[in-house]
Write a protein that binds this DNA or RNA. Sequence first.
DNA 1: CATCCACAGGAACTTGGGGGCA
DNA 2: TGCCCCCAAGTTCCTGTGGATG
Length: 442
Amino acid sequence: MLITWTRTHGRHPLAAAPAADKDVMETTIMSGNIFDEILTLKSLFINKEVLRHSYLPNTMIHREEEIESLSFNLVEALKGHIPSNMILYGVTGAGKTAVTKYVCKQLQMKGEKIGRKVFPVLVNCRQIDTQYRVLAHLSNTLLEEFEAPDIPFTGWPTDRVFKELVKRMERRGGVYVIILDEIDHLIKKAGDDLLYNLTNLNSELNEARACVIGISNDLKFTDYLDPRVRSRLGQQDIIFNPYNAEQLQEILHDRAVEGIEENALSQDVIPLCSALAAQEHGDARCALDLLRVSTEKAEKESAELVEKRHVRAAQAQIECDQITPVIRTLPTQQKIVLAAVMLNEYNGLKNIQTGEVFYIYKQACTRVGLSLLSARRVSGLISNLDMLGLITANTVSKGRYGRSKQINSCLPDNLDVKTIMSNSESVIADVFAHSYKHQSRL
DNA sequence: CATCCACAGGAACTTGGGGGCA
DNA sequence: TGCCCCCAAGTTCCTGTGGATG
């Protein structure tokens, strides 16, 4: 919102401060800046970036085999040939994306050295999740540095974007490694037309070459593919097994040497972070987050040593930090459905049925004057909340009494969902402010 | 063993908002 | 300006389903 400074809005920000304001400012200056104290705190970090999962280390331990398989295939690009298409499988935090980035970086460096043009392009299919957008993204990244992205986010027919992509690849030549991260998400949402086109690219190209690397968390996503696409894409598979606690310890130790002051970690911190992350299906990202946040916690309280209790506190905070933005950014209707689940639970109900959620949802919408969605749509929204991990919704059959979902919220106890939702949308505060009639159970 | 409940969830369609182009 | 395209969110219609019940 644009605020114009008029008499009613008070003083123009550039106008001279009246005496009272001046006093406040001078007091602040006299007593120092609020950042002074924080800046003088002794930091436990040498380089915090090293502990972020976006950081690409110089060596990647415990992924030697995977690196080898990937580079044996991609080396073809350096010889001017077409590498095989590949699919990399593995749980989150198993190092698939990091290994791919690592290998591609090395590939590109080598290519520059020996005068072979190799262009790896990474697309995150969770963010860029339609055929049109992936093609437009690829096309726009292939522009020369001085050119502005020129394919609009919508408006063109998809085949025109595809033709433009082919044209640009031909103009530049070289070998393109198209990496589709979280490809399973794209397939489930947009089907396999894009993959059909991308795996068929080489038949359209003369000067350039292309291969596709799909990265997936879901081992079975190829079930959704057309058999032709499946055979063309899955020429080579690599499976990334989850890290075990010992491997995680070594990874953390390596990063800690670079990122955290010597002797700042008590002996049991790294083993605990690794053990907790190993429980979470061997997620290295989770382990790094735990280590970083616990060090931050210790630093905040001016402790010289990071201890077990900091890790525990970090674990609780990370959980809340991940969920809060998800809840805050839910669309209004989705929030009301979640609120309906919570309201049922506040009333002491467990294993709530879809019908019961819809019953409260209807009352809530009527109360706050919002339009009602169909039961089919609400059922879809419940599935969405389940996918986001905010609730669990298991389909169960109660025989004569029908087939429905058993819905339970799965939010951490220390998270104030009511406040988070109410603060982000006043309508939700209204929803929670009333009481509702609950459906009688059989 | 057929019936029936209370949905689940797929498919096709609509609506409305974003845009390009001749 | 009218027609084309893309896309998200939603509706309508429909078939499928697991197991208690009579």
